[in-house]
Simulated assay, not measured.
Amino acid sequence: MASRAGSAPTIVDVAAQAGVSIKTVSRVLNQEPGVQEATREQVLKVVAALKYRPKLSARSLAGARSFLIGLLYYDPSAAFVAGVQKGATLRCREAGYHLVVESLHNDAADIDQQVERMVSALRPDGMVLTPPLCDNPKVLKALRESQTPCVLMSPGRQVKGQPSVCMDDVHAAEEVTNLLISLGHERIAFIKGATDQAASARRYQGFDNAMRAHGLAVDPELVHQGDFTFKTGVEGAHQLLSRRVRPTAVFASNDDMALGVLAAAQRLGLAVPADLSIAGFDDSPAAGLVWPPLTTVRQPVDQMARTAVEMLIGANRSDAEPPTEASLHRVLPYELVVRDSTSAPFDRPARVAGKARKR
């Protein structure tokens, strides 16, 4: 049996040509278990031959699913958002889902109504929430009331029963600070991130922990409040480097701000790392392209997004088992990447050899 000339093939055509039921075709397309491998291969072969593409509306009616995953973000860092979108898009594509990306202003008075309208229009199978939206009570309440599953990326705290994925920001920041101290730096400045994002506080905590562990006092005058943007990195650098006794190293809590510090240092005629070591956080694409390339933490942003989407898709499978509390909270590994923007101060030898590998 073949579809009418000029008309798009249907699931009925696929089932007939493959010699299976419509339900079996649906199970193959939805990557559900319980189908013999030979049958699965035959169905996929027919799907490819007929160039069959299931309509989202039809799939939704058949399985009470939209095959849409929503991604909500409000973040000034383009590199972070790009990484999240890349990871989420690829995982959705692999599973036959589509990703819908929406930007919401975290301080909008009607943000809950915006979420409600979005859910009503799209009926997504789940939402991935990035910071700071993942900690916004209005957003969480709107999704909870609409019974829309969601996974939180880097939330301020783990909530029982609420899926989340993150990395260990505190320990990562400790490693960066330990590296700087091991190189011989003691007068280390720190530029904080946006106050509405939990990662900002965690990274500062890691910096403070490491300084205290080495018996070094954190000078309040060497701590600048930024907001994860290049501009506040430049502003912070000018403030920190204008002091009579300058810091020998600056740790900015994301790469955008670290790049701002690098630009400001070069404008002031300071050589990096001879006059000033600079470290960032995230390992954005620009971190390895500037000169000197930045020492930073490789945050697994794309993998975190992939994992968040996988958790939503997994929960929608017909054979999904009830998750354990431990499986609801995923912590992914990071990597400290040492590059040419950090070295020992010119007047002081390194305390101990650095353990991180240089790239």
Results as ranks from 00 to 15, higher is better:
R202T: 02
G161P: 08
G215N: 12
E175P: 00
T177Q: 01
V176H: 03
E175L: 12
D219I: 11
A210D: 01
P163W: 10
Q162Y: 06
A198P: 07
H185N: 08
R187T: 08
Y204C: 12
L179K: 02
M153I: 15
A173E: 03
G215R: 11
F207R: 09
N209R: 15
R203L: 11
R157G: 08
M153F: 07
G161H: 10
M211I: 09
Y204A: 09
I181L: 13
D169N: 12
H214T: 04
P220H: 07
E175C: 09
D168N: 11
D196H: 07
I191M: 07
G215D: 14
L180V: 09
F207L: 13
G193N: 10
A210S: 15
P220M: 08
I191P: 05
A172D: 02
E221R: 14
I188H: 01
E174Y: 00
M153W: 03
E186W: 04
D196V: 04
A172T: 03
C166S: 09
P220Q: 11
V159F: 06
A194E: 10
V218S: 10
E174T: 04
N178R: 14
F207C: 13
T177W: 00
Q162F: 05
A213G: 10
G156I: 03
I191R: 02
R187F: 06
H185Y: 05
Q197P: 06
L179W: 09
G184Y: 02
S182M: 11
E174S: 02
R187Y: 07
I191V: 07
A173F: 04
T195N: 11
P163G: 08
L183C: 06
R187I: 03
S154F: 00
A189E: 04
E186I: 07
V176W: 01
E175V: 09
Q162S: 09
E186A: 13
L216G: 03
I188G: 00
R187G: 01
E174N: 03
E175N: 07
Q197F: 12
G215S: 14
H171C: 04
A217W: 03
A194C: 06
K192S: 04
M167P: 00
G215V: 12
G206H: 02
A199H: 04
S164E: 02
L180E: 03
R202H: 05
H185M: 07
R203Y: 06
A217M: 08
C166H: 06
G215Y: 15
A173H: 02
H171N: 05
M153E: 10
H171V: 05
Y204Q: 15
H185I: 10
A217I: 10
G206V: 15
K192W: 00
A210M: 15
P220G: 09
R212M: 15
K160Y: 05
D219L: 06
A198N: 12
H185K: 05
K192F: 00
Q158P: 01
A172I: 00
F207T: 13
D196M: 04
E186H: 15
V218F: 05
E174A: 00
R187H: 13
Q205P: 11
V159H: 06
I181K: 04
G156V: 02
R157C: 10
D219Y: 06
E174C: 08
R203S: 06
G161Q: 08
